[in-house]
Design a binder for these strands. Sequence first.
RNA 1: GCGCCAUUGGUGAAGUGGUUAACACGCUGGUUUGUGGCACCAGUAUGCAAGAGUUCGAUCCUCUUAUGACGCCCCA
Length: 453
Amino acid sequence: MIQKQKGCNDIYGREAKIWKYIDTVIDAIMEKYNYTYIRTPIIEATELFHRGIGSSTDIVTKETYDFVDRGGRKISLRPEGTAGVVRSFIENKMYGDPSLPLKVYYNGTMYRYERPQSGRDRELTQFGMEILGSDDPLCDAEIISLAVNIYKMLGLKEIKVNINSLGDDESRLKYREELIKYFKPHIDELCEDCKERLEKNPLRILDCKVDADNKLIKNAPKTLDYLNEESRDRFEKVQEYLDVFEVKYEINPNIVRGLDYYNHTVFEIEAKVEGFGSNNVLGGGGRYNGLCKQLDGPDTPCIGFACGIGRLVTALELEKVPLPIVEDIDLFLLYVNEEEKNYAAYLSQELRLAGFIVETEYNNRSLKAQFKQAERLNAKYIAVLNSEDLNNNEIKIKNSKTKEEEIISLDAIIYYLDEKLNTNLDDEEDCGCGEEHECNGNHDCGGNCHCHH
RNA sequence: GCGCCAUUGGUGAAGUGGUUAACACGCUGGUUUGUGGCACCAGUAUGCAAGAGUUCGAUCCUCUUAUGACGCCCCA
């Protein structure tokens, strides 16, 4: 049997509905914030990622899917979205648009050649947004608050926002040096991984799990102490705007992002819900003012955010967030003979075009089996087509929950269903009492919803 | 790249170095029921991830590979 590739997933059924739902929420809110959708290729020149993300980062040196195409070109599957967006920004000369900043969002598949584990796959879907062409701290705050609002809009409550500032390149370099200077005399007190980090990526030592309680780390110099005045002012400004947006956040000096292109504001949003694996960061981002120039474009200040959809789905499920996912059908049409089957076919089309979710039997199974099928599909109503009834222009409709059965005129069926189904909907809608009561099971919340009836 | 555990039917799974791989659910058919959902009867893995090895004989032992789970590095 041919199996799917390691770390890739087939998404179908209920899970696929959740993914589609998330997409609709994202599209809706991004439209309000006036971000336009951008779609860039999944394959890019390998060089883009080496120059963009940084050739010293693990993500580029050992985690890209690389290949040489038939024309001898070095190609990589994109491991993240920003580099492609910036490439597109430059290549299409979007920087010349007088209406800058450009606000865009993407939503697509990324690939990283990693060992899969909880919350990490080789094929992942990331949604992300970028503002290109503005250095205004308001942009930083907007991106962070927008990210938070998306999580909120989806119904997540247990999230935490961590922010930090790496400062400009000058501050960042100086800090790095100070950090090495600080740890070097104590190298023997660090864990094996940290000894390596000291040269490679000293900032990561601060985030070490083994040495979490190490006094050395707690007393290490903080990024924020090494910001120059300008950087510090801008970080404070970002916080002011965040307060305006009423975003709750924490300053976490240990937030160090993995990609080389970040400077100034960096942030991460983590899931705090019980049960998440060790990878609990839902999304993160930051400012990358140097990237555009690095890729031979004009010096353009930018900021962005990216979020893994897979982890988002996990968070939604762990928090048991009620989702508006349709998992039942309105009507199932049963039949026994060919004449009835023809009518079932005809009627199903009529009712579908009238807006109802209608199913019928395809395999000529026994009536008993058809009833079971109707039950499996969660049909709200069941109609057994009967030649005699049909000749009398009548149809027998049964409510599968109450078991009430009615014989109605065929001409009235649309009106009948409309009334019945909409009545059911009304039961579920807000009735203003604000109380918590038992879920009527008509939607997909696993019985845990807080109905505001 | 490293580590640890796992891989039995549609599903959840029990199990043993040796004739017919337990049980449950599900599914299919039948009986009964004024048209299902209850009950009863019957059927439902020629195979225990793939390959190789040890053995008289392996699903159970060994090795390799693949995949899954989790963790490390790193990261969303």
